[in-house]
Design a protein around this nucleic acid. Sequence first.
RNA 1: GUGGCCAUAGUUAAAUGGUAUAACGUCGGGUUGUGGUUCCGAUAUUACGGGUUCAAUUCCCGUUGGUCACC
Length: 390
Amino acid sequence: MFERIAQERTLRKGRLNTLHGVLESPFFMPVATKGSIRGIGPQEMLTQVQSQILLMNTYHLYLKPGYDLVHELGGLHTFANWPKPILTDSGGYQVFSLSKHRKLSEEGAEFRSHIDGAKHMLTPEESIKTQYYLGSDIIMVLDECPPGGSSREYIKASLELTTRWARRCRAELDRLCEADGRAKDDRPLLFGIVQGGIYEDLRKESLRQLEEIGFDGYAIGGVSVGESRADVLKVIKWIAPLLPEDKPRYLMGLGKPEEIAYAASLGVDMFDCVIPTREARHGSVFVWNSADKEGDVHRYLDALEESSKTATLPNESFFHVYKAGNATYAKDAQPIDPYAEWEGSKEYTRAYMRHMFKVGEQMALEYFSRHNLHFYLEMMQYIRSYTAKN
RNA sequence: GUGGCCAUAGUUAAAUGGUAUAACGUCGGGUUGUGGUUCCGAUAUUACGGGUUCAAUUCCCGUUGGUCACC
């Protein structure tokens, strides 16, 4: 299911087999919230951006259009005409982040839809069933993701609830697969989620409990939900190397390019984050530092060998952020990123794109999103090639 | 030419005898398991000169500019 094909220190290059093909890791999953990335359709993600995988949100798809409709139309892959792997989240995070009225119990999370206010009950079984019928390749367990400032007692109780939910998720997916008579190698993958906040012992305890149940992959959850940057780096440093070596490791929701490089260098294989697309819509564009993009990323990974020992990031980076709306670029005749090489990256000047952004043209937001996704995926490519640098 | 009205941030407006609010714009920053073209911050010697007053953006006079009406 997962095999390591190369390694440089703790950075691993691998292959992950799914129902819709093989993924080369480490990889980044663009977030297609409701089934698409705003302004960039699945076909363009396939042929132009060339993403290996998309992440879709169970919460949104559950409320609209509903998994029964998607299932009836042949599942997400057919529905969206996306032939490659799809990872779905459990819906839990959205219940916590955007539903005002919610009630947590042993049974599950009761919440009100942000669309029409209707009451729903998200249980571990319901989450798994939804993801299963949506046709997901990688299914995530339902977990509770407590906010950054939560007390140790709360985190401990929460992690134990997450374990009990994880056990029910495992059982429900096994039940569904068996009912459909699916062979062991013809099933979607199920990932457990390690919680435990900023406490090293709780993180280890959470992992131990999950391993007892047994999952196809392990995710680090509850990171960057309000803690300091330093704490985030510490948690990753503690827990990433402890996740089972023969299984894929997924860092949920992170991050900035340098954080991804950091976590990958510590052995994380999978990433997702809204930063490239959300920041694009707000006018932040990631720009390479030089024409030697691969060399720059590799040198950054070299520098991480030392800095990651103290859970810090190297001083010198391989990119910088260009704020598309800033006055400095009013007459700038360069392309938005002089070192970008995707088709169309040199078509417009910064001066023109600044104007498009300032007057609120949708085209600018999509152009920046496209660029940032290319940037992220290209960075992942160089992270993978690091294992072959010698 | 005569008379009325007006002059507050880049713009449009608000307010008060105790040094001024907002929206938009402009400038800068944020965004980490994506409802949201988004959130946060900065941005004014109240046209100019003089007077009354402890204190004037506010009241009075003049200048300049705008605007309307009449000749």
